[in-house]
Design a protein around this nucleic acid. Structure first.
Lengths: 346, 346
DNA sequence: CATGGGCATTTGATCGATCAAACCCACCGG
DNA sequence: CCGGTGGGTTTGATCGATCAAATGCCCATG
């Protein structure tokens, strides 16, 4: 394993100076085309690759994004983070950015990690997931002038428009509207909702999507109250909740939409094929048993996150004070993936 | 955001030289305790944090591990990587190592990434997952003197003992032995196996665990042939395979063990509660519906990977030529997690 | 009393790149 | 003929840390 070539090596090989080589790589337009060719030839001949740490030291930019790997939220839906992470990593790579992981047991610890990683210049931007109302993390990041984007809206009313807070999110309400409408269009009418208890930013948003669509379809509030059940995440809870709705409505349920695939799987098992169930997140489980589900456009979320992070400058992370290029947030439309049940549960 | 303190700042604050500060941090024992105290006081007063890139540039060690984020293998079992990643990140952190992600569409591309990351000194060790027979990646890594550990045995016969190849794996055969024995101990006898087609390193290994346990229990080869089904990954395949076994055996099945939770979920649905089904990987789905499953000790896998990577030297990645500290591999025992079905599928 | 060994600490060089300013040279206008 | 202009290129300094060698100091030893 001989020593790797450096800018100087390339420079001598091409008969120019270090700086010219550097220019060819970072500001090709200031170099005469003729020279540029010669340098590029030397670069590829020697197989030169810039030394990331050296560049980072000099430029004070790590071109690395830090993201916390959640402590595996119980449910099936953990995969969402996984898919997002994959999209983010792939797209970041194309922009010359790297993705570094860290873990933390709680918000406090996560903030400690922010400090470590940013002080050590390991990372110069963060991506946060699973934001919640009054999240101390965003507060800290803003206060300390750190660059970040959240996947998920800041659910506090005031926070939502905070110009310092860039976010990308998926319109869960629209997702549930689509799911509900899909069932209505099939001629079904008494569509139940199984979702998380209030208050929950995401949960309430999705719930609203179902509720307003149903009201538009002419159901009154009493009917809707009977058709909905709010329950914590988890397959058994989903099954139980649906049974409760059936009991409350005298078994008149004709379809179900849920706020997660976990709940939906439970509901599906309880429904035993008597009527359709639609989940949320389009997890592999949904895909493999043939359950319809609302798919979050995670590729686009990743794109949005990176756009907001890098601003106009592809590749480099945005400098302090640079304009962000409105809008400062993106709200993306999810998409319903309709499926035919592949596995008869009965 | 004022400039961050450097070693020199700490040095002047403590009335010593740069190097002494550096020594306090990297080789505390060569500094007189008295001086050390003074320096440490200055460090914490100024809130000094070493600049990672600067250190990396000088030491030529990035203290960063690269790992590929798989392109989301269809199945439910993708979560295994997720849990492993979490364990790895958390433990690496404790050793002062960072985990950096990358993606790649295939082995070729992955090798290109190896080159980029190692040449750029972004990463100085790799962790590979999902190894397969004749894997070109390990070959490349060995040839180019890169440090790496695989999670998964090299399944080629010769490779298995290659001293250059460090690996950690979970004994799938033992896992299926445990699962099978568990059902036998409950007085069940005709236990079916639903697993992946041969050849497949992991698949055949797990299959062997079931088969040998069953033979020990007195079943003959004809009976066993009828009780097993090999099918690709996926919930519907699992259901179908189990129905095939039922047909072949005249419905005499009394229990099922599977090579994955995806297959097991399919089998479970097909079994409709008539007899127990045991999966493999202990994914959240299994946990939430109350399906027994074989749990891989991913925490221990992570520990093993890091031990092999860092050798005796906690924190620093092992130098070339340093002894590895036999054994050069770890084969860990999985553990059966027995459960009671929470959700009656019928 | 000089020599030398061991310990704690300091000094100068270095890792590989980029920044800022200097430099060179051809060309133009007065 | 000289000063000015500007594109293209080079030079020296720098980022923040660690390495290697030098320094100073004290004490034991011949």
């Amino acid at each position: 394993m001989t020593r790797l070539p450096t800018v100087s090596d390339v420079a001598t090989a091409a008969g120019v100076s270090r700086q010219t080589v550097s220019n060819v790589l970072n500001a090709p337009d200031v170099v005469r085309p003729e020279t540029r060719e010669r340098v590029l030839a030397a670069v590829s001949e020697l197989g030169y690759r810039p030394h990331a740490s050296a560049r980072r030291l000099r430029t004070q930019q790590s071109s690395t994004i830090g993201i916390r790997l959640d402590p595996m939220t119980d449910g099936i839906s953990g995969v969402v983070l996984d898919r997002f992470l994959h999209a983010l990593t792939a797209q970041a790579d194309a922009l010359g950015l790297r993705v570094m992981l860290f873990t933390a047991a709680g918000p406090e610890e996560e903030i400690a990690q922010f400090r470590r990683l940013s002080d050590g210049a390991d990372v110069d931007a963060f991506v946060l997931t699973s934001t919640f109302e009054g999240d101390p993390r965003t507060e800290w990041l803003i206060e300390h002038g750190q660059r970040f984007v959240t996947f998920g809206r800041p659910w506090g009313v005031d926070d939502m428009e905070d110009p310092q807070h860039l976010w990308v999110d998926v319109d869960g309400r629209a997702g549930l509207r689509a799911a509900t409408r899909h069932l209505l269009d099939e001629g079904l009418r008494r569509i139940a909702y199984v979702g998380w208890p209030s208050p929950s930013g995401t949960g309430d948003d999705r719930h609203a999507g179902w509720r307003e669509t149903m009201r538009e379809a002419g159901l009154d509030d009493d009917e809707l109250d009977a058709l909905e059940a709010r329950t914590p995440e988890g397959v058994p809870h989903g099954a139980e909740a649906l049974r409760a709705v059936e009991a409350a409505t005298g078994g008149a349920v004709e379809g179900v939409v849920c706020s997660s695939d976990s709940l939906a799987l439970g509901a599906l098992l309880a429904a035993r094929g008597r009527y359709p169930v639609i989940g949320y997140d389009n997890t592999p489980v949904a895909a493999s048993i043939g359950m319809s589900s609302v798919d979050q456009p995670l590729e686009q979320v990743a794109t949005g996150v990176l756009e907001l992070l890098t601003g106009a400058h592809g590749g480099r992370v945005r400098h302090d004070g640079e304009p962000v290029g409105d809008p400062r947030h993106r709200l993306l439309e999810p998409r319903l993936v309709p499926r035919e049940l592949q596995v008869a549960p009965a």
